Amino acid sequence: MDALKSAGRALIRSPSLAKQSWGGGGRHRKLPENWTDTRETLLEGMLFSLKYLGMTLVEQPKGEELSAAAIKRIVATAKASGKKLQKVTLKVSPRGIILTDNLTNQLIENVSIYRISYCTADKMHDKVFAYIAQSQHNQSLECHAFLCTKRKMAQAVTLTVAQAFKVAFEFWQVSKEEKEKRDKASQEGGDVLGARQDCTPPLKSLVATGNLLDLEETAKAPLSTVSANTTNMDEVPRPQALSGSSVVWELDDGLDEAFSRLAQSRTNPQVLDTGLTAQDMHYAQCLSPVDWDKPDSSGTEQDDLFSF
C-alpha cells in the first residue's frame, strides 16, 4: 500500500511530472533526481522514447528462454528487412502500455495491464526491452520488442512496467475491499429498513384510530445511509488515497477476473515476472533518469539497429 499512497501523494503535489519523457535525446524537461521519484509518476504514465523492432507469436506467457528466442527472431526479421526502425513513445501506467508513433502521434497499440504476463531486458541484446501480452483480438500470446538507447534504459522500462503492474494490483485490492464494505453496509441498511417496515402498523389501523404518522421519526431512520450505499452501487469504487486528485481509476471486468485468478494461483500475485536478476534490479533502481541518457562506457552510441 505504500507504493499506492506515495504515488497518489506525488501526483497530487505535481501532476505535471508524469508528462516528462525519457530517452528522447535531450528533449525532456528537468528530471527527478532518483528512481523513487520517477516511480511516483506512474499514475498518469511515464513516457519512454524507443524504437519498435516488431512482434512475434509465442506459445507460453512467460520465460527467459522463451523471450530470448522470440527477441532473436524479431531482431533477425528487422535486420533482414533493412528498413529504419519506427520511433515510438511507450506510455507506461497502472492501466497498461500505450504505444504511439512519434511522427504521426497515431495510436499503435493499447495493452491493458492485466494482459501483460512478462517483461524483460534481454541478456543477449542488452539494449532490447520486450514484453509478452495476450492479444486483445484473440487468445494468442505476442512478444513485442523495442530497441532502447542503452542497457540502462531497457532495464528502466522493464522495472517501470513491473512497478505499474504492482500498483494496478494494489488498486484492485483496495477497490475489492471498498466494494465488500459497501455491499455489507448496503445489506445491513436493508435489514434495518426491513425491520422498521415489519414493526410499522398498517396504514388502515392508523387511520381508524385517528393517529398521525410521525414524519420526524421517519426522517431519523437510516434511510439516507441505505440510499447512499445503493444509489451508486454500479459505480466502481476508487482508492481513497486518490481522493481529490485528477486521476480516475476504473476497474473493468477483465482486470477484476484476471487479478482474482492471480490472487488464487500465485504466492506473490502482485509481482510481474521479469528477466532481471536481483543485481540488475538493484543497479537500475539506483540510477537517476539522467543516467539513462548518458552514453555507455563501451563506446559511442549508434542510432541504428545494427549497432548491437
Rank of each mutant, 00 (worst) to 15 (best):
T89R: 15
D2F: 04
K87W: 08
C119E: 01
E177S: 15
A219T: 04
L287I: 15
A258Q: 10
D280G: 07
L141V: 07
Q20M: 13
V88N: 01
Q270R: 03
G23I: 02
L141Q: 06
L193W: 04
A10R: 06
D198P: 15
E177Y: 13
C286K: 03
V192Y: 02
Q139F: 05
A278F: 09
V290L: 03
D256A: 05
L31T: 11
D101G: 13
Y283G: 09
G54R: 00
Q136W: 05
P289C: 09
V157P: 00
M46V: 12
D296V: 06
L57M: 03
P237F: 09
M281K: 11
H144A: 07
T267Y: 11
A3D: 10
V207R: 15
L212C: 10
R266V: 05
L43E: 10
Q302M: 09
G63L: 02
Y114I: 08
E301W: 04
H137E: 13
N110A: 04
N34A: 10
L203N: 03
T225K: 11
T38G: 13
Q139I: 08
S117K: 11
N268W: 03
A76I: 11
V128Q: 00
I74F: 00
Y118S: 02
T41F: 08
K152E: 14
S205T: 13
E178I: 12
P289D: 05
Q106V: 14
A156M: 15
R29F: 08
L11H: 11
L262D: 02
H137M: 13
N110Y: 03
E216V: 06
Q60M: 14
S140T: 15
A156Y: 12
A69K: 12
K91M: 07
E142P: 00
P94N: 02
I98T: 14
Q20W: 14
S288G: 09
W22V: 02
L141R: 13
L255I: 10
L206W: 09
G275P: 04
E235R: 08
E177L: 14
Q270E: 01
A168H: 03
R13N: 14
I98M: 05
E217D: 13
N211C: 04
W22Q: 10
W22P: 11
T200L: 04
V75P: 00
T300R: 07
G63Y: 06
A68C: 01
W292Q: 09
E40W: 02
D37H: 05
Q173R: 14
D256F: 02
A154S: 06
A69Y: 07
Q173Y: 08
K72A: 07
T104H: 02
V88T: 05
L242E: 15
K19P: 11
K62F: 04
M153S: 13
D198W: 03
N34K: 11
L99F: 12
T225F: 03
I116E: 00
E178T: 08
Q302F: 06
L276H: 11
R261C: 02
G194A: 13
K87L: 13
A10S: 14
G190T: 05
D303L: 04
A154V: 14
V157A: 05
C199T: 05
A228L: 03
G194S: 05
G24R: 03
R151L: 00
T41E: 12
K83I: 06
P15M: 07
A228S: 14
F165K: 02
S140Q: 10
A208M: 07
I98K: 03
D293S: 06
L215S: 09
L262N: 03
P15R: 13
E44V: 14
V192S: 05
G96I: 02
T120P: 05
T230Q: 09
S297I: 06
G194E: 09
E250I: 08
Q187M: 02
E180P: 08
F48P: 01
Y283P: 11
M124F: 05
S140F: 08
K51T: 00
T56D: 01
R27Y: 05
C143S: 01
T225Y: 05
T158E: 02
E257V: 07
T104R: 06
Q136D: 12
W35H: 04
A154H: 01
G96Y: 03
E188C: 03
T38A: 12
M153V: 12
V247Q: 11
P269H: 03
R39H: 14
M281G: 04
A78S: 15
A76T: 08
R29N: 11
T149M: 11
W22R: 05
Q106T: 15
N102T: 09
F169R: 02
S16G: 04
R261T: 04
D191Q: 06
F306T: 01
A18Q: 08
M153G: 15
G54L: 00
W35E: 15
Q134I: 02
L31W: 09
L31Y: 11
A221I: 07
S288H: 04
P269E: 02
A258V: 03
Q285D: 04
T209E: 13
G45A: 08
E180F: 09
M281H: 06
A130R: 00
Q279K: 10
K91F: 06
R73V: 13
R39Q: 03
T274V: 12
I113C: 01
V88Q: 09
V247G: 13
W172R: 02
G26Y: 10
W249M: 13
G23Q: 03
R39N: 03
M281D: 06
E109K: 07
F169H: 02
I116H: 01
Q240R: 13
L11I: 09
M281Q: 05
L305E: 09
L206N: 05
T89M: 14
M46A: 15
C199Q: 15
R27I: 13
P222M: 13
H144P: 00
S175M: 02
I74N: 00
H28I: 13
V111T: 11
G244K: 03
W249S: 07
S140E: 10
G8T: 11
D304V: 09
S6Y: 14
F169I: 03
K79S: 01
L255W: 06
E142T: 15
Q173F: 10
P239M: 06
L272W: 03
K30E: 13
I97K: 00
D101M: 15
L242P: 12
H282Y: 09
